[in-house]
Design a protein around this nucleic acid. Sequence first.
DNA 1: ACCTGAACACCGTTCAAGT
DNA 2: ACCTGAACACCGTTCAAGT
Lengths: 202, 202
Amino acid sequence: MTSQKEPSAADDKRRLILDAAAELVSEGGYSALSIRALASRAGMSLGLLYYYFADKHAVFAALMRDQQATMVELLDSQPRDLGLRSLLLAMVEPTRRQWLQVGRLVGVWRAERPDVTVEAREQQLDSARTQFEALERALRECAAAEGRVMRAEPEIVPFVWASLMGIADLHAQGWVTPIDEDRLTDITVSAIEEHVLEPTKE
Amino acid sequence: MTSQKEPSAADDKRRLILDAAAELVSEGGYSALSIRALASRAGMSLGLLYYYFADKHAVFAALMRDQQATMVELLDSQPRDLGLRSLLLAMVEPTRRQWLQVGRLVGVWRAERPDVTVEAREQQLDSARTQFEALERALRECAAAEGRVMRAEPEIVPFVWASLMGIADLHAQGWVTPIDEDRLTDITVSAIEEHVLEPTKE
DNA sequence: ACCTGAACACCGTTCAAGT
DNA sequence: ACCTGAACACCGTTCAAGT
């Protein structure tokens, strides 16, 4: 369904491990995701996990990429003719779900492994970029359906993302790299300012 | 300086442990905060840590309350006559610092210990509430200095908080309890909506 | 190529034993 | 009351050994 070519036996095995991992996390949180529990749930030995995944971090990273792929599919399949507000409201719940399932793990993982390999970091950035692009498409097309134009600043999409995550008690990732931090700050502060004040009576 | 009465010998010891813990975290992240490293850094035995703190979680919780107390002091000492925007801009950096130092640990701790005791949770909520009240005071007084009135909805302060955390790559805590989630969603979505669209030309 | 489980170096926590 | 460190039950990871 989501695969391009025939999945190999190794791919099937990896899938099996990832499904077991997702089960464990949703059942007992991150602390339930131990290598031993995972091996037992996936019906294989301890050592075999290390044949299919480099380490625990790799398992989690794959889990996270799954989540992001799901989010991209969801964004792309969202109707555009209902406008921007409908899109945003529809994304609140899925965003919350993503945060609950892997969001807090990102914090853990980042905290526990500040020394990720370069290519692992690269893969992670790439997956995040794809998700941002899907959000950008959805925002732009929904705005267009209302006959409006989305602001061109590249900070807009991360701003929306961070706001959605705020609602979902989210941990906004550090992924947001190709960005003018001052502009992002400025935009966010302006939004805060306008929504904190009562409209002046004049 | 921050204490009301003469600190006892036990308080001093606890202070010593917490300072050592803060050092370790700032040096090597959460993974560097092991009980053994902490005991060694604080110059005491393994077992003694458990005399002064119930467990590792208690050490971290105390660390977090320190950070929040610092934030409250900072908010209260912020000048009011420069208006709301200045306040917000001034809070961006301290907020980021708090997030870097303990923010990501909250995620870890919550993930690793979903079964916190009731009183521990209560203490945490209380500390968070104090911080929110300080933010509310600062916002209201800064708005007043501009001759404006802050919106009365209780969702406003958490909205500001979440936005600041968004800028700081922050993990917005689950503390935001006495709140209408739909209203919070609505306000945030409205903010997003207005800041995503180019002003119509008419 | 795929798979096993003992072994290693850790970890947080407990507790009998000391002063 | 304050303090110690061996011991316990874990953990992620490695690796010689099997098919």
